[in-house]
C-alpha cells in the first residue's frame, strides 16, 4: 500500500455566487493553462446587468496564478502599502472563498459562496 506524500491542492473551480447590498453576481472559476479565470455568468448592481451568452463572454479577472497559498495576479510594482497584487483569492472553506481586490490603495474584501447549480458556458 502506498501513500502519496504530495498534498493535492483544493479545487476551487466551479460556480460561485456573491449577493450583498450593492450587487449580486455569479462567476465560474476555470483553470486555463494553469491560470485561474472568473467568467461572469450574471451580474446586476441595480443598473448594469450582464448575462452570459455566446455573444457576451466577460471575465472579472484572468491570469491568476497560485502563489503563497492563494491565487493572485501580479501588478507592476508594489503599492505604497506593499501589496503586489490586484486580485487575491483564498479558500476559507470548501464552500467559501475570500476574494480581495486592491482598489485605489484600498482592499475590498468579499466572500463568495459555492453554488452547486450546474452551469453551462459557451
Amino acid at each position: 500500500m502506498f501513500f502519496s506524500c504530495t498534498r493535492s491542492e483544493p479545487d476551487i473551480t466551479g460556480r460561485w455566487v456573491i449577493d450583498n447590498d450593492f450587487f449580486k453576481a455569479t462567476y465560474v472559476l476555470q483553470m486555463k493553462e494553469g491560470r485561474l479565470t472568473a467568467l461572469v455568468l450574471d451580474y446586476y448592481d441595480g443598473t448594469t446587468r450582464i448575462s452570459h451568452n455566446a455573444q457576451n463572454k466577460q471575465y472579472l479577472f484572468k491570469n491568476l496564478e497560485r502563489e503563497r497559498g492563494s491565487f493572485i495576479d501580479g501588478i507592476s510594482g508594489a503599492t505604497r502599502k506593499g501589496i503586489d497584487w490586484e486580485f487575491r483569492i483564498t479558500q476559507m472553506a470548501n464552500d467559501t472563498l475570500l476574494v480581495e481586490q486592491q482598489i485605489s490603495g484600498k482592499v475590498l474584501k468579499e466572500l463568495w459562496v459555492r453554488s452547486n447549480k450546474k452551469y453551462e458556458t459557451f
Partner: peptide, 22 residues
C-alpha cells in the same frame, strides 16, 4: 492627477467588473 469620481484619496482605479474577452 489621480482623478476621482467620488472618493477620499485615490491613486489607482477600480478594475472593471468584467473584462471582456477577445
Amino acid at each position: 492627477i489621480p482623478l476621482l469620481f467620488f472618493t477620499l484619496g485615490c491613486e489607482d482605479e477600480i478594475r472593471n467588473i468584467a473584462a471582456n474577452e477577445g
